[in-house]
């Protein structure tokens, strides 16, 4: 299952696409949890992961 499903309307820079696929949400959560867990286990801070998390939250809102 692709992380980012195709959208019905053409996206533009001003409005990120609203993603329709219902199966997408749990996979994103699982992937982010997995990546954060790995980052924490390795004792590394990665600001990019936090930015992605906020982008995903904004998309889901």
């Amino acid at each position: 299952m692709p992380l980012l499903a195709t959208v019905d309307r053409p996206p533009c820079a001003a409005s990120p696409p609203v993603l329709q696929d219902e199966a997408r949400e749990p996979r994103i959560q699982a992937r982010l949890e997995h990546l954060f867990r790995h980052s924490l286990q390795a004792g590394r801070v990665n600001p990019l992961l936090h930015i992605v998390l906020r982008l995903r939250l904004k998309e889901g809102a």
Binding site: R31, L35, H38, N46, L48
Partner: peptide
């Protein structure tokens, strides 16, 4: 970090 490969085993390097 954006998971653009869409590969479950993919990790984010340091």
């Amino acid at each position: 970090a954006l998971d653009l490969s869409q590969l479950d085993a993919d990790l984010v390097p340091p």
